[in-house]
């Protein structure tokens, strides 16, 4: 029996996880269940009911953003995987390029695009779009109200997290064995059938990765909702931030909210993975 030295190599990872992941989560749990005095309490959780609106709003917007990312990202990944290597390199670089710019800066720049006097509205005004609309519909609009809406928040989420949807899906599709596609065609599958029965099921792992990597940050974002939502769309991230940086410093409530959010997200992920696995042995679509 080979006495493997491999477990030793895992030590840095274990240490890292222990310090930066496990310990903070334990701290959050402890804070969530205690009061300022230090005693055990469930009080923080009983208040959760008042925040249902924010919970549903956060999850709803995150879900919408994830679906939009999927709808945009999947076809894009598919198309890129079919092209030649030069196109793929250029395409990949273009997709990744915005990531080199700081997250906050990117979001700020969307503000200046969507503002009342922002780039888009100025452009529309310059080409006479508003005059046209006013003439046709008899309205009197001077600009499109884009900033400070839920749409703007979703846009910010999609813009920031789309590469995280594209990358995993693309890398799965591009590695698909071409002979599998030929075999499917040989057995009588038309292009749509090849996609439905071979490409799509085999790309599910990529989709699952992408969805996770978009959904989780979207649920907990606060910068996007503050900057693009104009502070009118309070999300979970804002709510938790309020407990720490708001008028009343209450880390216990903040931790409790964070804990509930974490649990819901984990449950969602579990359901999704379970659904994904079941697909493998199931009768096809």
């Amino acid at each position: 029996m080979k006495k493997s030295k491999r477990p030793l190599l895992a030590i840095p990872y274990v240490v890292w996880m222990a310090i930066f992941v496990v310990a903070p989560i334990i701290m959050v749990v402890i804070y969530a269940f205690s009061t300022a005095g230090g005693g055990f309490t469930l009080e923080n959780f009983t208040r959760m009911g008042t925040y249902t609106v924010i919970f549903t709003r956060s999850f709803r917007l995150a879900l919408i953003a994830t679906v939009v990312c999927l709808l945009i990202g999947y076809p894009l990944s598919y198309m890129m995987a079919k092209e030649g290597p030069r196109f793929q390199r250029v395409g990949m670089m273009l997709i990744m390029l915005p990531m080199w710019v700081n997250f906050l800066l990117r979001t700020y720049s969307w503000m200046s695009i969507l503002e009342k006097n922002g780039l888009l509205n100025q452009f529309f005004s310059a080409i006479g779009l508003f005059d046209l609309i006013n003439a046709v519909f008899g309205t009197n609009i001077q600009y499109f109200h884009m900033i400070g809406t839920q749409g703007a928040v979703v846009l910010g989420m999609v813009y920031n997290y789309l590469p995280f949807m594209i990358l995993p899906i693309y890398s799965v599709i591009v590695k698909l064995d071409n002979s599998l596609l030929e075999a499917a065609r040989d057995l009588g599958a038309s292009s749509t059938a090849v996609f439905r029965k071979v490409i799509f099921p085999l790309s599910l792992p990529g989709i699952l990765s992408g969805v996770t990597m978009v959904f989780v940050p979207s649920v907990s974002t606060f910068a996007i909702s503050r900057l693009l939502g104009g502070g009118t769309q309070m999300l979970l991230g804002d709510l938790i931030e309020q407990q720490f940086l708001g008028g009343a410093y209450n880390p216990h409530l903040g931790s409790a909210i964070a804990l509930v959010m974490m649990i819901i997200v984990v449950v969602c992920m579990w359901i999704m993975n379970h659904f994904g696995e079941g697909e493998e042995q199931a009768v096809m679509l």
Binding site: A184, V198, E279
Partner: peptide
């Protein structure tokens, strides 16, 4: 096919 090309899923 030479490498069978069986569907892994």
């Amino acid at each position: 096919f030479q490498k069978y090309a069986l569907f892994p899923h």
